[in-house]
């Protein structure tokens, strides 16, 4: 293992025919980091991490994964990374043991080593069912944890997880993120994609993607600060929406963003002064509560704001 960054990507582009799926993306990821890709479907998250896991070759630009490049068609990279795809990749008609043996066979792991790793990983994911359980009979969350174990059987330095919690019950999602933190605690680097804003808060740093481009990169706090340098308030009309007031606040100087959140509205301002000025006309009965921006607000401002 060398001491350089886990990932180093410069000017990376990936094309499918005439379609540019990933467009001139650059970033680097340190070892032991939880690095998240956040974006809508089709933003290029999956394509990026499939390439970084050695499944696709870059069209242009350079990428080094664990210090390795693509000179050998990604074979070297595949040996030091683990990849868990969005779709469930284990075989439902095979037992837990057979699935893990198969994963070990594909990687030519020594049976004794594979058995040792299996025990370690079962402890990590707190799996206590017999090896002879059919995968089809297991609950969704446990299947997902097993898929992770299969992807980590060869003790990879870097683990890529593509939408690991999509379609999983909320309790299992929280459990899975606990697992991700444990893995980075072991010195591994975890690259994860998600479209759940709340999950993205768990990442050390987030890369926001939109139509193949990287539009923001930083820790959740950094992203919030750069998107919303001023204060944010939540407007609650407690009943009928006052359209006249909304219209007025939309034209207020210093307003950065006004977006609906269910029955409420989030309004962000450049600074405290402009917020106070805009809120003087707040109708009686309505409330304005100062709030901290969420990643969802950041996403709306940075991603959807550009699409308007």
């Amino acid at each position: 293992m060398n001491a350089g960054p886990a990932l180093e990507v410069k000017g990376l582009s990936i094309k499918f025919g005439g379609f540019t799926a990933v467009d001139d993306v650059s970033f680097s990821v340190n070892r032991g980091e939880i690095f998240g890709f956040l974006g809508a479907n089709g933003a290029g998250k999956t394509t990026t991490i499939r390439m970084l896991a050695g499944l696709l070759a870059p069209a242009s630009g350079s990428a080094r994964v664990g210090g390795l490049g693509f000179e050998d068609g990604g074979q070297g990279i595949k040996k030091i990374v683990g990849y868990m795809s969005q779709k469930f990749t284990l075989y439902n008609d095979m037992t837990v043991g057979e699935n893990l043996d198969f994963a070990a066979g594909l990687r030519k792991l020594d049976p004794a080593y594979a058995a040792k790793r299996r025990k370690e990983l079962f402890k990590l994911i707190a799996f206590n069912k017999p090896l002879s359980s059919m995968v089809a009979s297991l609950p969704g969350g446990i299947k997902q944890e097993l898929a992770l174990a299969a992807a980590m059987l060869h003790d990879p330095e870097i683990v890529f997880l593509d939408e690991p919690t999509s379609g999983v019950a909320p309790a299992s999602r929280a459990r899975f993120w606990e697992l991700i933190r444990k893995i980075t605690g072991l010195g591994k680097t975890v690259i994860v994609t998600t479209h759940y804003m709340d999950e993205a808060e768990n990442c050390g740093r987030i890369a926001l993607m939109r139509t193949g481009r990287l539009i923001a990169l930083g820790s959740p706090e950094e992203l919030k600060k750069s998107a919303f340098p001023g204060p944010m308030t939540e407007l609650d009309f407690k009943g009928a929406v006052d359209e006249a007031f909304l219209k007025e606040i939309k034209g207020a100087p210093g307003l950065l963003e006004l977006s609906p959140h269910g029955m409420r509205w989030h309004a962000a301002f450049k600074d405290k002064g402009s917020m106070e000025a805009a809120l003087t006309a707040l109708p009686a009965g309505a409330a304005a509560e100062p709030i901290k921006p969420s990643l969802e607000d950041v996403f709306i401002r940075l991603v959807e704001g550009r699409e308007r």
Partner: peptide
């Protein structure tokens, strides 16, 4: 269809 092809492809096979 199952998505298990991704598993195969992610290994050096």
């Amino acid at each position: 269809e199952n998505g298990s092809m991704e598993l195969l492809l992610s290994t050096p096979v």
